[in-house]
Design a protein around this nucleic acid. Structure first.
Length: 631
RNA sequence: GCCACCGUAGCUUAGACCGGUUGAGCGGCUGAUUUGUAAUCAGCAGGUCGGGAGUUCAAAUCUCUCCGGUGGCUCCA
């Protein structure tokens, strides 16, 4: 069926005249006025015939979800033939209509069904907020036709029940549930934690309403950072010079930090043999959508994480308990996952992404816990230095088996205390995944969608699968616990979240910008006249940072406009006044203009750059020499 | 993968419902102007209307299909 939902202040309708298909109604049903209402205009279609019950249920599911979102008090079901050209017969339609009405009534909603098969006049007052109008196509789920190709693992996962609660800093568990209206999470007072609420809803609620495209997509293209590549496969992007610079800097910073804190960087192949015994067992355990490639001799798959190479390496290594814990690290460029088409979302979810993947091999659980705490602090430093507010800018999630939680509650609480804000906990009765415990820090974007940045997991399964052992003090071989951490999350995802953050700022009237160390141009000099171009170039030589010069024959106003549109953090107009006084009026993005001489300016630049990695300008220093990659 | 929507110049877009020579702004180029804090003026070039097939005397427009994108579902080891 096709539906149109209107969230209205009121709807008023009157049945005027019967059509051939009209249902019998009493006079009192002919006219009605309902206020604070969600009106569902519905066209029942031929494909709903014979599946009336399922269709009614599907309709109810959609209605309840939307009612929950828009907080409507009442519901009107309004049969409306004009949304479809293949209408169901009248008896089917009437049956679905009243079945849905009954189900909604039983669930405690105030529901009205307007008469079927009558010409009706109506008056409606649409509220006009973003979710107040939406259309949906609803299909009756044919439950018998469930996909039988699903592996047992996927089926088991479906059966696995999650228990959700908020664990606060005092150690109280606030059990969460979705209420009847589906999209509302109850059980915790989120008053001071709007983002935690959004995150919980995102994680627990099955569906959501959003019509917009995420803002980072327009930004990544307009700023000439990253773009789609229609000549590749979906989710494989092209990076323009400015985007490549940002990606390089982020990669370098994460690499440096992981290595500085004991991670041994290695490199492993991106493709692997399906027939290798360890890999075969792993692939069966976690049926994934991977790229497959035919080599001249065999069929291989592209890695979806750096685990494979590191585990195969460790299988061959000789390790004593005295060497533990040890950290292997690779920045996998790329990891490949063939996400379904509809799951791809700009830089948030890709088919090829760059993942810092650091595995810690630990002798036992106490050692693993210490490692996790240590790496927790590493991630905090890394993300904080990159430019995130921690903990306020991210949401803490813990996923854990009941057994691990009960036996290690102090440890779990310890992490929540370190974070110093409440965490969302998802607890499973049985272990399904290879890990018994994992945590994530999630970024909540402009459209209330969450995605994980840092994550760390305790893997109790793969040491055995890959035959990774160490020799203990007892002279016997043992399987280590393996921790999987992505210190910062995928590099692409950092770019996504930095752009989304900038976009949120600009919605609140704060000028959008990237952290200074990532700004492709950090300082731009604008010569007032052509004769000052060479002097500007000379000044650029004396300054630290990425300095460029707008040497084009255009007005100063236009130069400023360009620089602002590029989010250049420091803009300086240079002409006679500056030459004489030696003082520059520096336009500082998002702050007051300040007067500085060249030495003070250099100090300011160094301060803003701090200890973060640096690379020179990714484009010609003279703007006249640059090409346009995109509009 | 399923459902819906979208694809016209490098970019933003008008034209599509109702078939009849694709029109503009920005950007680019050329020239004029020599300019002090968010768009100087004029001219020129730029289009397989995402690709292919079909219907038609005639297709950007209608139909089918493929590719690409967005949203929802599903998924996110």
């Amino acid at each position: 069926m096709k539906t149109l939902f209107i969230h209205a202040d009121f709807i008023e309708y009157e049945a005027r005249k019967k059509t051939k298909l009209a249902e019998e109604i009493s006079d009192s049903q002919k006219h009605n006025r309902v206020e604070e209402v969600l009106v569902a205009f519905i066209s029942f279609e031929t494909r709903d015939e014979g599946k009336e019950e399922a269709a009614a249920k599907a309709l109810v599911t959609n209605i309840e979800e939307i009612v929950g979102k828009v907080e409507a008090e009442r519901i009107v079901l309004y049969p409306y033939a004009h949304l479809s050209s293949s209408l169901a017969n009248a008896s089917s339609s009437i049956k679905i209509l009243h079945l849905a009405e009954d189900i909604l009534k039983e669930a405690g909603h105030e529901v009205y069904a307007s008469p079927f098969g009558w010409y009706k006049s109506f008056n409606i007052s649409c509220k006009g907020h973003p979710l107040s109008e939406l259309s949906r196509e609803i299909t009756a789920d044919d439950e018998a036709a469930e996909d039988s190709d699903l592996s047992d693992a996927v089926k088991a996962e479906e059966k696995m029940k999650s228990q959700w609660f908020v664990l606060d800093v005092e150690g109280n568990e606030h059990s969460l549930e979705l209420d009847a209206k589906k999209n509302k999470v109850k059980g915790y007072d989120f008053a001071d934690n709007i983002n935690l609420k959004k995150f919980c809803q995102y994680e627990m609620a099955k569906s959501r309403i959003s019509k917009q495209e995420p803002p980072h997509i327009e930004l990544m293209r307009r700023l000439e950072l990253v773009d789609y590549e229609p000549g590749s496969d979906p989710g494989n992007f092209r990076y323009y010079p400015k985007g490549k610079l940002i990606k390089n800097l982020l990669e370098r910073f994460v690499n440096d930090e992981v290595k500085r804190t004991g991670g041994m960087e290695i490199e492993s192949p991106i493709m692997y043999d399906f027939e290798h015994p360890s890999l075969k067992s792993y692939m069966n355990r976690f049926p994934a959508r991977q790229y497959t490639i035919q080599t001249p001799d065999k069929k291989v798959f592209l890695r979806f994480a750096a685990c494979f190479g590191q585990f195969l390496m460790m299988h061959d290594a000789t390790v004593s308990y005295k060497n533990l814990p040890l950290r292997l690290y690779e920045l996998s460029r790329y990891s490949f996952r063939v996400e379904q088409r509809g799951e791809l979302a700009g830089l948030r979810r890709l088919r090829a992404f760059t993942m810092p993947d650091c595995h810690s091999f630990c002798a036992d659980l106490p050692q693993a816990k210490e490692e996790i705490e240590d790496r927790f602090e590493l991630s905090r430093t890394v993300l904080n230095d990159i430019g995130y507010d921690i903990p306020d800018g991210l949401e803490f999630a813990i996923r854990v088996t009941k057994e691990f939680y009960d036996e290690n509650k102090d440890f779990v609480m310890g992490l929540v205390k370190r974070w110093n804000r409440p965490a969302l906990v998802e607890m499973w009765n049985e272990r399904f995944f290879y890990f018994v415990f994992k945590y994530e820090w999630n970024f909540v974007d402009c459209l209330d969608k969450a995605s994980a940045l840092n994550t760390d997991q305790i893997d109790v399964e793969n040491a055995e699968r890959y035959g990774i052992t160490y020799v203990g003090s007892d002279g016997e071989k043992h399987y280590p616990l393996i921790l999987h951490q992505s210190t910062s999350g995928a590099i692409e995802r950092l770019i996504y979240s930095l752009l989304e953050k900038a976009s949120m700022d600009s919605q609140q009237g704060i000028k959008a910008q990237l952290p200074f160390w990532l700004a492709p141009t950090q300082i731009r000099l604008l010569p007032v006249k052509e004769e000052f171009i060479d002097e500007c170039l000379a000044i650029a030589e004396k300054l630290p940072g990425r300095v460029d010069v707008d040497d084009r024959d255009i007005s100063v106003g236009k130069m400023i406009r360009y620089a602002e549109k590029e989010w250049v953090p420091l803009i300086i107009v240079y002409g006679d006044k500056e030459k004489e006084s030696g003082q520059f009026m520096v336009r500082v993005r998002g702050a007051e203009e300040i007067a500085l001489d060249i030495d003070a300016l250099a100090v300011l630049i160094d301060e803003k750059q701090g200890k973060m990695p640096f690379e020179p300008l990714p484009l010609a220093q003279k703007l006249s020499r640059r090409i346009t990659f995109r509009g």
